[in-house]
């Protein structure tokens, strides 16, 4: 669903150039939930913005749903983003004049879903995140964590085939963070490719695969999960 082939990103030039990504290869299949971890400045956000077509790679190829981004016009990319990609970024970008529910249902309505159906889908997503009772509130009247969950609900409703989330649980406590990861996992099980940037190992452990960035390079990744059976065999203690 999302594929980065030999992607590098250089900001600026000359001696002050920043190599944010170096020769990154990553393929995320439909139905897969991938977590990206790495120290601050290692290129995690850059990877998401390039994978989401918000920025261009300096070299290398980005393929979303079979389409190579490099060949697309700005308009085509914008259309792809609206239709197929859900973003959760750190500044939530909620519209102040709309209620929480309207913020979530609006993208669906723009794409032709009836207002009633869109509202129903929005309410379901808000309920899964435990904020259905805030549906009628405006963003200014929500707590930081509530705003964050509205933004997540907005990113996952509809037929998103690719969901990209950058530290989506920053303002949330651990129980609410878990609800977010459960929801993202569910979205992936329904067939979307999901990429989550996080520095929190517990959240990353919801992913099918965890990849590690360091200085712009993809240096390591977890093996395919071996399932809980092997866990029981090896006993409950981590060999820390």
């Amino acid at each position: 669903m999302l594929e980065l082939r030999g992607v590098s990103k250089v900001y600026g030039g000359g001696p002050t150039a920043v190599h944010a990504l170096r020769d990154v290869g990553l393929a995320v299949a439909a139905g897969e939930l991938v977590a990206v971890m790495g120290p601050s400045g290692s290129g995690k956000s850059t990877l998401l913005t390039i994978g989401g077509s918000l920025e261009d790679a300096t070299t290398g190829q980005v393929v979303v749903g079979g389409a190579v981004l490099q060949g697309m016009s700005k308009k085509e990319k914008a259309r792809l983003r609206r239709r197929a990609i859900g973003f959760v970024f750190q500044d939530f970008n909620l519209l102040a004049g709309l209620t929480a529910a309207e913020n979530v249902s609006m993208p669906l309505e723009l794409d032709g879903t009836s207002a009633r159906a869109a509202r129903e889908v929005a309410m379901t997503a808000l309920a899964q995140l435990g904020i259905e009772d805030r549906a009628g509130h405006f963003p200014d009247d929500l707590s930081g964590g509530e705003r964050q969950r509205v933004a997540i609900a907005r990113a996952v409703v509809g037929e998103r085939r690719l969901v990209l989330a950058d530290e989506p649980t920053g303002a949330l406590d651990s129980v609410n963070s878990e609800a977010v990861m459960r929801l993202l996992r569910e979205i992936s099980r329904r067939g979307a490719a999901v990429v989550v940037v996080t520095h929190d190992a517990q959240l990353a452990s919801w992913a099918d695969r965890v990849v590690f960035l360091r200085d712009g390079r993809l240096v390591d990744q977890t093996a395919a999960p071996s399932g809980p059976e092997s866990l029981l065999a090896s006993g409950p203690r981590p060999p820390a």
Binding site: M37, R182, R185, A201, Q202, A204, S205, W206, A207, V210, F212, D220, Q221, T222, A223, P225, S226, G227, P228, S230, L231, P238, A240
Partner: peptide
């Protein structure tokens, strides 16, 4: 780090 996170993935799978 990878080893511990793989272990966490298996625990989380039990919960999930």
């Amino acid at each position: 780090r990878r080893h511990l996170i793989e272990l966490m993935q298996r625990y989380t799978a039990v919960k999930a």
